[in-house]
Each structure stands twice: as C-alpha cells, then as structure tokens.
Design a protein around this nucleic acid. Structure first.
Length: 735
DNA sequence: TCTAGATTCATTTTT
DNA sequence: TGAATCTAGA
C-alpha cells in the first residue's frame, strides 16, 4: 500500500487523514496545506484499497467551482470510476435526494427550481395579495428572511416574529410557500431544508439513506449552515464515517447562514472524533505567510494555529499607496506589464472587495492591451433575453410555473398587459390555482372580456409547443420552442445593435442545449433546466487562456496564483463600510486573509487615497488591518499619506480635488506610446484584446476585451464598419 | 397597451 | 454610475 497512487506525494499528517478509516474525522487544514489533496486522495484510497463502491461515497463541496475542481482531481486518480461518486454541492445533493423522494414531502414530481429572480416575482405577488406595499417591506428583505429561516430548518409556522417587520415577513412566507406549491416550485433554501424534513419524518427513508453512504467527505466545512450540518448528521448516522475538512480562519459566509461553530464544536458533537491539523503550507513564501498570518491572528475568536513553510527565500510583500483609484489601477497594470515577461498572465490575479471595483481595473488593462478574464462578473444565464428563452422552456416543462409565465406572457409583446395580468392573478387567487392555469380557464370562459383573444392565443401557443416537443430531446425541443416563441422574430426585426447581441445570446443558449444533449445521459428538457438552475457561473477557471484573472475576494477562495494584487485596502472598503459589529470585522479580516493566502510567490497590496464611488469622490484612509503586518515582511512604495487630512467637504470641491490629482497624474504618467504597447503584446490565445478578428456579418475588427470561457466566450470588438459590439467568439475567425 | 423619458435606487459577499 | 422601475402621454 505504501507505493499506491492514493498515498504518493503526501506528508505524514496528510497520510494519517487519508488512512483514517472508521469514525468521524475533523481535518483542520490551514490555507495552502493541501486539504483538497487530502479529500481526493482519501476518496481514491477508499475506492482502490478498501474496495468501497464509488456510489457509497458522498463528497460535498460548497461551490460549483470547488465541485468541478474536485471531480477533475478525483478523475485523475480514479479514472472512469469517479463518475459513480456522489460528488457535488450541497444544493445539488439535496436536489438529487428530492428527485428521489420529494413526493413524500408533497412535492410535485416535476418541480421547478426558482432562482432569486423568480423568488422575488413570487414574493411580490404574495405581498400584493396580502395588501402589503413593497415600500413598507422590500421583497429583498423578505427573501433574506425566508432564506435564513430555511437555513435554520424553520417553516412558516416555526418562525418566531418578535418585531413588526418579521411578523409581516412571516405572513408573506406563509403565503409564498402556498403559492410555490401551486406553481410546483422550490427555492434554493428548500433544496436543503426539505430533504432534512422528509428524512426526519420518514423512518424508512431515513434508514435507507443513512445506510447508503458508507463514507461522507465535506470540503470547506467552515462554511456550512445549520441545515447542511443537519443533513450531514442524518446521512452519516448509520456508518458515522464523516470526514470534514475546513479552516475556521477562512469562514467568510456567515452572512449566508454559515455557522463556524459547526467546525469548532465538531469534536463535541461527534464523540470520538479524531482531529488532524495540517499546518504545513506548501503554497506560499515565508513573507506571504507572515503577512497574512499577522492579519488573521488579530482575531479573538479562532483556533490558534501557525502555518509554517520551508520556502524561506521569497520577495517581501509590497504595499503600494496611490492618490486615486485610477492611479492604483494603472500601477497594478504596470506591474503586470513588467511581470508578464517572466510569468504567464494566467498566473496573475487581481482581487477586490466589491464587484464595482473591477471597472477601473478593466479599463486600465484594456488600454494597456493586457488580456483579462473577470470571474463571476455578469453571468450568461442572468441576461434578460436568455432568461426569456429559458422562461419558455420552463413553462413548457412545468405548465404551472407562475414565475415563468409572468416572465414570458408578454415577451415579445402580444397585447397582454398589466390589467390583464392582474385579472389573471385575481382569478388564480380566488380559485387557488396557478396563474398559467388561471389564464387557461379564463381564456375559455363564456363572458368575454378585453384581451381574452390574446390570452387564448398565448395559451394555445404554449399547448402547441408542449405537444410538439413532448418526446424530443433538449436541443431539438429548445430550438422548436425558441422559434415558436416569437423571441427570435422580434429580435430579428429590431435594427438596434443590442438586438443583434441578444440574438447572439439566444444562439448561445441553443449551443448550450446542444452541448448538454451531447454530454448527458438524461437528454430531456427538464434535465437540462435542472442543471442550469444550479449552475450560477462558468465554473472552472481556465488557466489555458493567457489572461489575468479578476475577481472578488470571496470568489478567490480555493484558488492560487504565482502573483496576486489585493486592491482597495482602505477603511470603509476593507473592512467594508456597513459592517459595525466585532464579529463582522473579524469576518472581514478572514476575508482579507483568504485573499492574501492565494499568492505563491509575490503579493502586492494596494490602496488609494481617493476613490470614485457613484458620482462622488471619497477620501479614504488606509485599512486599519494592515498595521498588523510586521515591518520586515513588507516593503512600502508609492504615496505614504502620512497624516492624511480631514476629508474635503462638499461634493463639488471633492470633485475638483480629484480632477486636479488626476490631471497631475496624467503628466507624471503619460499614456503609453504605441511602441510600448506593441512590445507588451505577447503571444496570446484567440480573440484576446489587441488581436484582430473577422465576424460572419460585421466584418473585420480589433478585439477590445474577452469574457467567459469555451463556448460561452464573448468578445468585445471594435469593427471597422459597425463600431463596437459584443459578439460570440464562436462567430469569429482570428486574423 | 406601449414607449420613451424620468426617476429612483443601490452597490458585499452567492448556492 | 448605471440598472431597474415608474409614469405620463400617445
């Protein structure tokens, strides 16, 4: 067994965790200590050496990104056998279980999953029905309330309402649940809460499912919430082989209900649990470890631990101050320009606290013609036209899908306006039926009303589609539905530039459908929709593309790069401005810690004295967190901003000050000449900024930016004939 | 019912 | 700032 693949390349502690066979196991794994390695090798060991059937192993991760990464790595160790593992996010696991036994909880067999948007629609409807104005109570507040409740495994009857707001929320919650049931839909919270509730209520099912998984492994355990913990406890109750891996210092999702005590109290909750600590860091240099460790050690509530490494020689961490956010961006881009001589761009990343910070950085990268990819920026499936298209598909699959019906009933315009929709809503409320069903019934009632014809036409259109695609696979069905929906016609007739790109997006939806049909055993439309509803992003970071990665600090978790830039380290941004309690501050510290521990070789921390936000310019001071970093681990460059004065008062004077500073910067940092730009332009993959390409219908142009990967890649191009447009990479030919 | 123009609103993080 | 929602007038 010594020489087996499952054990190779592990240190003693890691090997101990991999070889631990029976009983609960907690692996406290510091950043970069090889925790994913422990999980993947442990799975390989179980299958290869202990002859555990892959389907008896459940491996859960927190995000899609982590799941696909793990699938990939297990695949390398196990080959084809990896396909039979239950490996996925908590939500996907919950969904798989509900598909199997959801009817025990009164779920319709073909239930639909509602995303945040659909949920909001339903909440608005519920509130309207209860005569609660959305001024008094924001749907978003209710959505958060319901999410929190479900994470706590509390149904509408179980929530306690101490104040008037939560009493209202509880009222809406009740109504919302009823409406969701009629619509045959569940939300994200249900995917966790319902399996737990059903298992608790059904001893037979409980026996079956707890017997099924001999081994359970959980990654990023510090980010689990109550419902997830409960699910794990139920599923592991028979075999008790629950192995959880996590780092309390990297808990950054408490706002989503994550409960750090799950990891802190694990040994108490699971008697006889073995605890393994991984403290050797294989990722970063000593300087990076010292700096990041200094930050997180400021926190009072944590397990004391010290990461160590034997990578003694490294360059010090840099802290660079700029006058403005523009300068900061330019400085970062300048460093990237220098570094790319020796380091591929794919090994560099820029992290920031809020998504809105990416804009200045993107602008600077674009003007320096450095290719970049924004991770988790705008999402394909969030685009309006894509949602419209999906709306039709959903309504075909689930005829009671109220949210989908609301979305597509008048898109494209077919004379079914607000008045008519309200009428349908009222009828649905009285009859206790879904809105699509109400529309069907109304369209054939005797006493005619204005717009009934339109309603009837739409109802018949949907019925026709349903009949047409009943036996078809997802791709064929999708194409038929989109064609008959009128979406494509409406967009084709629209001469605007945006319409063109929307049409592209619909084409892209079709290729996603084709892709799905080719690669999945379940080729049904329902299967596709299910998959789509849980994929929120392009999951995998594609390092084969030579481009700098930009992402939020949250999105950075679990990734690593040779060189990183952590930007915007100012008070009110890091820690973020609307955090007021100590627990929140500690979480912000952990977030910074996560961001800082992503770097292997070089790390640059940056801040700017003035930062533009909305239409005002904020004068900021350096993040108080940074004071903790020992001097010998860090080099300071740029503006020192000692004794920064009081903020300049009044928006207009701020603006002038900012403009003056920007002007001054222009002089000291003149724009690059075209020669410099040309030198910087290295060998880059297809359709990266600076290259030229030809589009099927727009002709030739110059690539400005690129986003997304693979089939979903989109490219912004300045065409010679038609100006700047965003198009699909698939429709381009490199020149 | 539809459209364009006005107005408001929120920007922390996401399955 | 820019997206989302609202409103007035056609």
């Amino acid at each position: 067994m010594q020489g087996s693949a499952a054990l190779s390349g592990l240190n003693d502690t890691q090997r101990g965790a991999v070889l631990h066979s029976e009983g609960p196991l907690l692996v406290l794994a510091g950043a970069g200590s090889g925790k994913t390695r422990v999980i993947t090798h442990r799975i390989a060991h179980l299958v290869r050496e202990l002859q555990v059937a892959p389907w008896q192993i459940l491996a859960v991760t927190f995000s899609n990104k982590a799941a696909s990464e793990m699938r990939h790595r297990v695949g390398e160790l196990l080959g084809a056998q990896a396909a039979d593992l239950w490996l996925g996010t908590f939500h996907r696991t919950g969904l798989r279980m509900l598909r199997s036994f959801g009817q025990h909880g009164g779920l319709a067999s073909g239930f639909t999953i509602y995303d945040r948007d659909d949920q909001k629609k339903m909440l608005k409807r519920a509130m309207a029905a209860l005569n609660i104005s959305d001024q008094r109570l924001k749907p978003k507040v209710v959505a958060n309330f319901i999410d929190r409740a479900k994470n706590q495994l509390k149904g509408p009857d179980a929530v306690t309402s101490r104040d008037p707001t939560s009493a209202l929320c509880a009222q809406v919650y009740s109504r919302y649940e009823a409406d969701m049931k009629i619509a045959g839909a569940v939300d994200f919270g249900d995917l966790l809460m319902r399996p737990v509730q059903i298992l608790q209520a059904e001893p037979t099912l409980m026996q079956m499912w707890s017997g099924r998984f001999k081994y359970i492994l959980v990654d990023e355990f510090q980010d689990t919430n109550h419902a997830q913990m409960q699910l794990l406890q139920l599923l592991s109750s028979e075999h008790r082989n629950l192995c959880v891996v996590g780092d309390d210092d990297q808990s950054i999702y408490s706002w989503r209900g994550a409960d750090v005590s799950n990891i802190l109290d694990f040994p108490k909750r699971f008697e006889g649990a073995r605890v393994v600590k991984l403290e050797r860091n294989y990722r970063s240099t000593a300087q990076i470890l010292a700096a990041s460790g200094a930050i997180v050690s400021q926190n009072a509530s944590r397990h004391a631990k010290t990461l160590w490494t034997d990578q003694k020689d490294g360059s010090p961490v840099h802290l660079h101050g700029s006058n403005t956010d523009l300068d900061e961006a330019r400085w970062v881009v300048g460093r990237i320009g220098e570094a790319r001589v020796a380091e591929p761009l794919s090994e560099m990343a820029i992290f920031y606290r809020t998504n809105s910070q990416s804009r200045v950085l993107e602008d600077a990268l674009r003007s320096a013609r450095i290719p970049y990819v924004v991770i988790g920026g705008l999402r394909f499936y969030d685009r309006a036209e894509v949602k419209d298209g999906l709306g039709y598909l959903k309504l075909v699959v689930n005829p009671d899908d109220t949210a989908a019906w609301l979305r597509v009933v008048n898109t494209p315009r077919r004379g079914i306006g607000k008045k008519l929709v309200e009428r349908v809503a009222d009828f649905a409320a009285i009859k206790q039926i879904s809105m699509p069903e109400a529309a069907r019934q109304l369209s054939v009632v005797k006493e005619s009303f204005r717009g009934q014809k339109h309603l009837k036409a739409f109802t018949e259109l949907m019925a026709q589609m349903r009949a047409d695609v009943a036996t078809k696979s997802a791709d064929t069905a999708g194409v038929m539905i989109l064609r008959h929906s009128g979406l494509i016609d409406a967009l084709s007739q629209d001469p605007s530039i945006e319409a063109e790109s929307r049409l592209d997006n619909l084409n892209q939806l079709v290729s996603a459908l084709t892709d799905y049909t080719e690669n999945h055993a379940d080729t049904s439309l329902g299967g596709y929709l299910e998959q789509v509803s849980l994929v929120t992003d392009i999951d995998k970071l594609d390092k084969t593309v030579d481009a700098v990665s930009l992402m939020t600090m949250h999105a950075a978790k679990g990734l690593e790069f040779n060189q990183t830039f952590v930007c915007g380290l100012e008070r009110n941004l890091m820690p973020h401005g609307n955090i007021d309690d100590e627990a929140g501050i500690e979480e912000e510290r952990r977030l910074l810690y996560v961001a800082m521990t992503r770097a292997r070789k070089r790390m640059y921390l940056t801040y700017a004295r003035r930062r533009q936000r909305f239409n005002e310019v904020l004068t900021q001071t350096i993040s108080p967190f940074l004071a903790a970093i020992p001097r010998d681990a860090m080099v300071r460059t740029g503006q020192q901003h000692q004794g920064w004065g009081a903020p300049v008062r009044g928006p207009s004077s701020r603006k002038q000050a900012w403009a003056r500073a920007a002007q001054k910067e222009q002089k000291t940092n003149p724009p690059r000449t075209s020669e410099e730009v040309a030198i910087q332009r290295g060998p880059v993959g297809p359709f990266l900024p600076g290259s030229r390409a030809r589009h099927v219908s727009f002709g030739e142009g110059e690539v400005l930016a690129r986003e997304g990967h693979g089939k979903l890649a989109r490219v912004t191009i300045r065409f010679h004939r038609v100006g700047v447009k965003k198009v699909l990479a698939r429709f381009l030919q490199a020149l």
